[in-house]
Nucleic acid binder design. Structure first.
Length: 679
RNA sequence: GGGCCCGUAGCUCAGCGGUUAGAGCAGGGGACUCAUAAUCCCUGGGUCGGGGGUUCGAAUCCCUCCGGGCCUACCA
């Protein structure tokens, strides 16, 4: 087989946050694939970069009082450190804020213009007059025009109503607290519909996408005309100004994927390669690894851009699912939102590399990091089964060395050498789960062999020295095969195996030829067992301070400013306005679930005597009905009844928190009586 | 409302038209002592989410329902 030329990318991590164990699913999946290809002898280049542009970076920089450039430089450094800690090896790790990227963006842009795909349309948006900037939906808050729920984002409210930010009642900019005004501005759009036929064909044929992804696109986007893509943002915007449209900047999703090319270009300059050979040459394969959340950009816009500008199209887009921890979404308060750097303080990266590999299917399925299983798998498979194989033979072999000729082994070496093809095929298809299972089977057979050959008995009899040497030669060669097959996942172990046997592991095919006549070095532990306490310590360290236990001796409170920032103060009101709201103490005398509703509980409140109110409260996410019965709450009692899908709500009960997972009901101190007004 | 993925042993998953449905871990019993309390042997455990259908034959294909996750739209 002649060597393939393969360019591989992972999605560009956003410069606004740190790498966490969810990101690592992707970078480890990709790194393993790249290492596999290199080990197979192919020409394979792995590029990535920080995604640096957009509003979120601007806001963070301002919040910290530093320039965007300083912020992204700092994050770049942190990202690189995290990746290298996990033995993720890029050939180039760049930034979308680079000269190369600006140049390539201009090139792609010119091609879109030339093809007549760019049109200008007025867009009317809310504008923050204080910050002199247009506001994306998530930076506007106000009262839902439908249910009058206050403090809702610009596109939808917690009760599930969707609307335009211009319909919000009393909108407030979360950037400045100012009242936004409506303004229009010309935006540039890409008429992607002109490429509909091409995209239909490209997504449905040629095996570029997993079947479920192709179906998703066909059913969801390609069944109707594709909408124009709004690709420009007015200043101020951290990004690249559009050369032929001063005052406008490319939307971050335009320049981010071009960052794949820009990073390649940087690499080409550094090592003296020809860029066109990698991006304009049918002989090159391009493989993107991404998460399912960004399917839309990579499978529609990106091929459209490449096609128009005459670059290589992706050979394959490998899409993976999300990470859950112990079956649930990662959570900051539970401590399962673990940063890469935190992980590395407590655990060996080899554990996670192995664990993810053992779980990853070729499909888009989510994968679960089950912490108990993590410990069990690492200890049982990696240490107990694989490394132990070396550990239990290398000590004997240190004195004997390897036999000059490979001894009879009942066909075990041959068998594992043959299985190499099936294992390689599994890696190629990103079916790491299957690859690992096959490898573990080989390791199992080797352990059985050792057990039965009992080198510890042979050692007792000097006359059996040669037999002992033969058994160790078999055992270590079977181990070496396993180490080769696991090299993409566990590069460190492959190196250690090379040192142990005085023969570095460089090629996959070395699994086909037994190693003989070599001295064996003193065995050193390759991977240590993991203890559940270490994992627990890591989880503890990842818990957000707000959830940590309060210190008994309350010293200075260190309350963060995030809540206030997330929801700035509303405009000042007069006392007269305040007293219009009649807040009352009320007792929950009945509570029941509204099964069809995602968030609602139906509460019956007593205001004392025979006064009853039925209130539908969106607190199901946190409170169960039985917890509430008997409790005192505070209720907005003179609110106009509101007809909702599941009945009429005659008031609201007071709670703080963002909504879904975070809700804190307010209740009065002991002694308060239902019906009392709150002044 | 539409779509996608998943539902197989206590747990995590494999099998995706054909012999009595598998693995690892966990459980039970035994062996061994070289090894990081590792290893080896034996063993219990499953209406393959429910129900229909296609087929000589279905965990595997089709329909439908239920449950979990996700994406996306619209109305109010």
């Amino acid at each position: 087989m002649s060597p393939r030329r393969i360019l591989v990318t992972s999605a560009l991590p956003y410069a606004n946050g740190h790498i966490h164990i969810g990101h690592l699913v992707e970078y480890l999946q990709t790194d393993i694939w790249v290492r596999f290809q290199k080990l197979r002898g192919h020409r394979c280049v792995y590029v990535c970069a920080d995604d640096t542009h957009g509003t979120a970076v601007m806001i963070s920089a301002e919040k910290e009082g530093i320039s965007e450039e300083d912020l992204i430089a700092r994050m770049h450094e942190a990202h690189v450190r995290d990746f290298s800690g996990f033995q993720i090896e890029f050939d180039n790790y760049g930034s979308t804020h680079s000269q190369e990227n600006r140049q390539l963006c201009a090139e792609v842009w010119a091609a879109l213009r030339r093809a007549g795909l760019v049109v200008e349309k007025e867009v009317t948006q809310l504008y923050d007059p204080e910050k002199k900037t247009f506001l994306a939906d998530r930076y506007v808050k106000g009262t839902c025009p439908f249910c009058k729920l206050p403090n809702q984002y610009g596109d939808s409210c917690d009760n599930g109503h969707t609307y335009s930010p211009t319909d919000l009642i009393d909108p407030v900019s979360t950037l400045s607290g100012a009242r936004p005004e409506l303004r229009s501005w010309p935006h540039l759009f890409v008429r992607i519909e002109k490429l509909h036929d091409f995209l239909q064909q490209w997504t449905q044929q040629g095996g570029h996408l997993q079947p479920e992804v192709a179906n998703y696109l066909a059913g969801h986007f390609l069944g109707e005309p594709l909408r124009d893509w709004d690709i420009s943002r007015p200043a101020p915007y951290f990004g690249f100004e559009i050369p032929d449209s001063p005052g406008n900047y490319w939307y971050v999703w335009f320049d981010a994927p071009i960052g794949y090319m820009a990073s390649t270009l940087q690499w080409c300059k550094r090592v003296g390669e020809d860029f066109d050979r990698w991006w304009r040459d049918d002989g090159t394969e391009i493989h993107h690894f991404i998460g399912k959340d960004i399917t839309y950009f990579h499978c529609l816009f990106w091929p459209a851009m490449l096609k128009t500008a005459g670059f290589n199209l992706p050979t394959k887009i490998h899409i993976h699912g999300f990470l859950t921890v112990d079956g649930q979404k990662m959570s900051k308060s539970k401590g399962t939102f673990v940063r890469a750097s935190t992980y590395l303080e407590y655990l060996d990266p080899a554990y996670l590399r192995y664990y993810y590999a053992s779980k990853l299917p070729p499909r888009v399925d989510d994968i679960d990091l089950n912490l108990d299983e993590f410990v069990a798998k690492v200890n049982a498979d990696l240490v107990g089964n694989v490394v132990n194989l070396a550990s239990r033979t290398a000590r004997f072999a240190h004195t004997t060395g390897l036999s000059p000729r490979y001894p009879e082994d009942g066909g075990l070496f041959e068998r594992a050498a043959r299985d190499g093809e099936a294992i390689a095929e599994a890696y190629e298809k990103c079916d790491y789960n299957r690859a690992i299972r096959l490898i573990l089977e080989a390791s199992d057979r080797a352990n059985q062999f050792i057990e039965q050959a009992a080198p510890w008995n042979l050692k007792k009899d000097r006359a059996k020295h040669d037999q002992l040497r033969d058994v160790c030669t078999v055992g270590l060669n079977l181990f070496r095969q396993v180490a080769i097959y696991l090299a993409p996942v566990l590069p460190r172990m492959a190196e250690q195996t090379g040192q142990l046997l005085n023969q570095p592991i460089c090629r996959w095919d070395e699994s086909k030829t037994p190693l003989v006549g070599k001295p064996v070095n003193r065995f050193q532990h390759m991977i240590t067992r993991v203890r559940a306490e270490q994992v627990q310590a890591m989880i503890q360290a990842s818990r957000e301070p707000e959830e940590a236990e309060r210190p008994a001796a309350a010293q200075a409170w260190d309350d963060g400013d995030e809540p206030l920032r997330a929801e700035p103060l509303a405009p000042t009101i007069s006392f007269d306005e305040f007293v219009k709201v009649d807040l009352r103490v009320a007792r929950v005398i009945a509570a029941e679930d509204v099964p069809e509703a995602r968030k609602l509980l139906k509460l019956t409140l007593s205001l004392g005597g025979s006064s009853r109110r039925t209130v539908l409260a969106g607190i199901k996410g946190v409170y169960r009905p039985e917890q509430l019965v008997g409790r005192l709450v505070i209720c907005a009692a003179n609110l106009a009844p509101r007809k909702m899908k599941f009945g009429t709500s005659e008031g609201m009960i007071l709670a703080s928190g963002s909504g879904d997972e975070e809700i804190y009901l307010l209740y009065p101190d002991k002694g308060a009586k239902p019906g009392q007004r709150v002044h």
